Amino acid sequence: MSRKLKNALELTVIYGIILVMFIIIFYPLLWAFGLSLNPGTSLYAASMIPENWSLEHYKWLFFDERSNYLTWYKNSLIVAFFTSVFSTALAAVVAYAFSRYRFVGRKYGLYVFLLLQMFPVLMGMVALYIMLNMVNLLDTLTGLILIYVGGSIPFMAWLVKGYYDTIPRELDEAARIDGAGHFRVFFTIMLPLAKPILAVVALFQFMAPFMDFLLPRIILRSPEKFTLALGLFNFVNDQFANNFTRFAAGAILVAVPIAIVYLLLQRYLITGLTAGGTKG
């Protein structure tokens, strides 16, 4: 087999895989978008390309007095924002300690982080539920934020620590020779060079509250405190409920804040700032 033919076959396979993945990803999205434009509420009477499309479901979500959609959206944004900020800050600090310092228990602490990644937060929900109830944080957005932040530390700290390890230690040593202290090294050297990985952490943690259903279901009880995932679930879960088209409209709009955050962080996600860290 000639090299030219081999390259052509490889490209065909690659493009074939991309096409299959494209169909798998976008076909459900197209169905959801088409479903949201169908008049009526029935799933079985709807089609992916409606003949008489309508925006009535989007209008209902935002303007009908019976709709709590804006409240759920606000709650999700609050939880996502604070979860992203606190998770990123804690992961940056904890990872810096494990990457740059040597102290008693460091090795076993890393093993504990690695072990904790194997168990989902849901396994400890009984204890977390009791703890939140004891401190009067059950059925509150604050309690939900604390669970998200605490559960993210092991994986995110391990992820950021691996990135810190790739930053040359010579930069730290040069800064300390010039009189920089630990905090100055952290804020002026490590954080600027670690922007790509911190952007990844911030994006992941911002997305999590929009996608998660189980934790809000366990912690939140009041409808006015529901997040989007929990609130939209009630559209198709309540007895005699048949609001699949409204559910699709609400689900489509979930992607808007995530897309905005991705666009804002895009230049950090695709740029490796450590490449020139030792030059000049």
Rank of each mutant, 00 (worst) to 15 (best):
M123K: 08
M123A: 15
M123V: 15
M125K: 04
M125V: 13
V126I: 15
V126G: 06
A127G: 15
A127R: 04
L128R: 09
L128F: 11
Y129R: 04
Y129M: 00
I130H: 11
I130V: 14
M131Y: 13
M131H: 07
L132K: 08
L132F: 01
L132W: 02
L132E: 09
M134P: 00
V135A: 00
N136I: 01
N136R: 09
N136K: 10
L138G: 05
L138H: 02
D139A: 10
L141M: 06
L141I: 06
L144N: 02
I145V: 15
L146M: 14
L146F: 10
I147Q: 07
I147T: 08
Y148M: 04
V149Y: 09
G150W: 01
S152D: 03
S152E: 03
I153M: 11
P154W: 11
F155R: 13
A157M: 06
A157T: 15
W158M: 15
L159R: 01
L159H: 01
L159V: 02
K161H: 10
G162W: 04
G162P: 07
Y164A: 10
D165L: 13
T166S: 15
I167W: 08
I167H: 05
L171W: 09
L171F: 08
L171D: 11
L171G: 08
A174W: 03
A175E: 12
I177C: 04
I177A: 05
D178T: 00
G179S: 10
G181H: 08
H182K: 04
F183D: 07
F186N: 02
F187D: 03
T188W: 06
T188H: 04
T188V: 07
I189P: 01
I189T: 00
I189D: 00
M190S: 14
L191D: 03
P192V: 10
A194S: 15
A194N: 01
P196Y: 05
P196M: 06
I197K: 00
I197M: 14
L198A: 03
L198Y: 02
A199I: 09
A199N: 09
A199Y: 05
V200F: 14
V200E: 07
V200D: 00
V201F: 12
Q205W: 02
Q205I: 01
A208T: 06
A208N: 08
P209V: 11
P209H: 10
F210H: 13
M211D: 13
M211P: 02
D212A: 06
F213C: 08
F213N: 09
F213L: 15
L214M: 15
L214R: 08
L215Q: 00
L215M: 00
I218W: 08
I219K: 00
L220T: 06
L220D: 06
L220F: 06
R221D: 12
S222N: 14
S222G: 10
P223E: 12
P223D: 11
E224G: 05
E224F: 07
F226H: 14
T227K: 05
T227N: 05
L228M: 13
L228A: 05
A229P: 04
L230A: 02
L230S: 07
L232F: 01
F233W: 06
N234K: 14
N237Y: 11
N237T: 13
N237K: 13
D238S: 08
F240I: 07
F240D: 13
F240W: 12
N242E: 10
N242R: 02
N242W: 01
N242P: 03
N243I: 05
F244M: 14
T245L: 11
R246V: 14
F247Q: 14
A248W: 09
A249M: 07
G250V: 11
A251N: 14
